[in-house]
Design a protein around this nucleic acid. Sequence first.
DNA 1: GGTAGGATGGGCT
DNA 2: GCCCATCCTACCC
Length: 193
Amino acid sequence: MQAFGSILPRSFYSRATTEVARDLLGRVVVHGECAGRIVETEAYLGVDDLAAHSARGITPRTRVLFGPPGHAYVYFIYGMYECLNVVAEPDGIPGGVLIRALEPLAGIEVMRKRRNRERVLDLCSGPGKLTQAMGITRAQNGADLTKGPLRILDGKPAPFEVEITPRIGISECADWPLRFVVAGSKFVSGKRA
DNA sequence: GGTAGGATGGGCT
DNA sequence: GCCCATCCTACCC
């Protein structure tokens, strides 16, 4: 994992959510022996963004989004899947970045077993898929991403173009340009072929 | 190649 | 009670 650089410091996350979402592209998520490079993110903004879980204020579930940056917010959706988010903004201000897709880099055999899928393109190409492949569950909700088995590394990304689009699968604020994609990546969500 | 619809359970109104 | 920041299978070109 050393090839992917050092752990991102808390100051990285203590910025505007859109900046963090854009800057997380190319970084490397590590959990145990598995690692993947982030190729797709979405920003969910504090209180005015009605698509964000934080829009209706602090509840037992959304508490983490209002806490210190650089922690994981993992929630359960559609009765079957978990989604991994990264808490942004300074402590006390809500903001989250949904990790939507990874390019698998390490632990690929483990990912195949967890996913029961062979093709590398089918392992982490969606928010529910990547948590399953990486072994991330609600047990990691609130985990500190600057230490511990679940962490995010600098990733030393080569230069790349960023594509910005509206977010996927929401109805409120559906036209806000808050989805960030590594242009041309084969590993983004929604690919079939 | 393509898409329609079912599975499934926690959180909030 | 109803809504979800989804994924997979079956089935149809």
